[in-house]
Simulated scan of single mutants.
Amino acid sequence: MTALDAIRARQSRSKVTDVAPSHEDLVTLVAAAGRVADHSSLRPWRLIELRGDDRLALGAAIAKAQGDKSPSSKPLRAPLLIAVVASYRPSEKVPMWEQEAVASGVAHMLSLLLDEAGWGVIWRTGHYTRSRAVAKAHGLGKNEQLLGWLYVGGKPAGKPGRRKEVKARELMSRMPAPKPKKDADAAHVEAPVKKAKKDKKNNKKKAKKKS
């Protein structure tokens, strides 16, 4: 299977089974996902594996962030959650938004690699990803932000639903052509003409006032 084939076949899986890749399985895939374009090779990202009771701790943190009494059951939808963290590095060349784009690129690449390896994956987010309670549960530093989680598990039997076609031609264009500059001679001729019209208009107004 080529990279193009893998990308065309990839689909998010909202429901997965209770099997998951091991830590060693992930190491190989993460090493490949980390090859995304990275200005100055800052590596402004890191990943956190959530397995077993880790998911219960996250459920409690989500509940605290939302003011709910009962822990959220959302983290239990998959046996493995991979938290995607943007870990910003000091840099005069690379702004924060660009570093966050690198972390997002790693998540997308890892999602594709997991799917191609036979695992079901979906990237989940939520307003609570930036909450203090959830950040504390993940042990994030002051220079870090959570971008969401990859929910990973086995692919259930049956084919997933069809995805909407990407109409590439409608999303692509060329850079706009620069507007042509007015010819210097033409501008020199236009100026007196415009002045004459303006003077004529003003003269009509004055004539009306006198009458």
Score class of each variant (00 low, 15 high):
Met1Cys: 00
Ala3Met: 06
Ala6Pro: 03
Ala6Asn: 09
Ile7Arg: 08
Arg13Val: 06
Arg13Tyr: 15
Ser14Cys: 13
Ser14Ile: 12
Val16Thr: 07
Val16Cys: 00
Thr17Leu: 15
Asp18Phe: 10
Val19Ser: 09
Pro21Ile: 01
Ser22Phe: 00
His23Pro: 05
Glu24Gly: 04
Glu24Thr: 14
Val27Cys: 07
Val27Phe: 05
Leu29Lys: 05
Ala32Asp: 12
Ala33Asn: 04
Ala33Cys: 08
Arg35Gly: 13
Arg43Glu: 09
Pro44Trp: 01
Pro44Glu: 10
Arg46Met: 05
Leu47Tyr: 07
Ile48Leu: 15
Glu49Asn: 11
Arg51Ala: 08
Asp54Leu: 07
Asp54Tyr: 02
Arg55Phe: 00
Gly59His: 08
Ile62Arg: 07
Ala63Pro: 01
Lys64Phe: 01
Gly67His: 07
Ser70Asp: 13
Ser72Thr: 00
Ser72Val: 05
Ser73Asp: 12
Leu76Ile: 10
Ala78Ile: 02
Ser87Cys: 03
Tyr88Gly: 14
Ser91Gly: 02
Val94Met: 06
Pro95Thr: 11
Gln99Leu: 00
Ala101Tyr: 04
Ala103Tyr: 06
Ser104Met: 09
Ser104Val: 09
Val106Glu: 02
Met109Cys: 14
Leu110His: 01
Ser111Pro: 00
Asp115Glu: 06
Gly118Thr: 04
Gly120Lys: 00
Thr129Lys: 08
Thr129Trp: 00
Thr129Met: 05
Arg130Lys: 11
Ser131Trp: 04
Ala135Lys: 13
Ala135His: 02
Lys136Tyr: 00
Lys136Arg: 14
Ala137Leu: 05
Leu140Lys: 07
Leu140Glu: 08
Gly141Thr: 08
Lys142Asp: 15
Gln145Leu: 11
Leu146Pro: 02
Leu147Ser: 07
Leu150Ser: 02
Leu150Thr: 05
Tyr151Cys: 02
Tyr151Phe: 15
Arg162Ala: 12
Val166Glu: 14
Lys167Thr: 05
Arg169Cys: 01
Leu171Ser: 05
Met175Thr: 13
Met175Glu: 13
Met175His: 09
Ala177Val: 13
Ala177Gln: 14
Ala177His: 13
Pro178Trp: 00
Ala186Tyr: 09
Val189Thr: 09
Glu190Phe: 06
Ala191Gly: 01
Lys194Trp: 01
Lys197Met: 10
Asp199Tyr: 02
Asp199Leu: 02
Asp199Asn: 04
Lys205Thr: 14
Ala207Pro: 00
Ser211Trp: 01
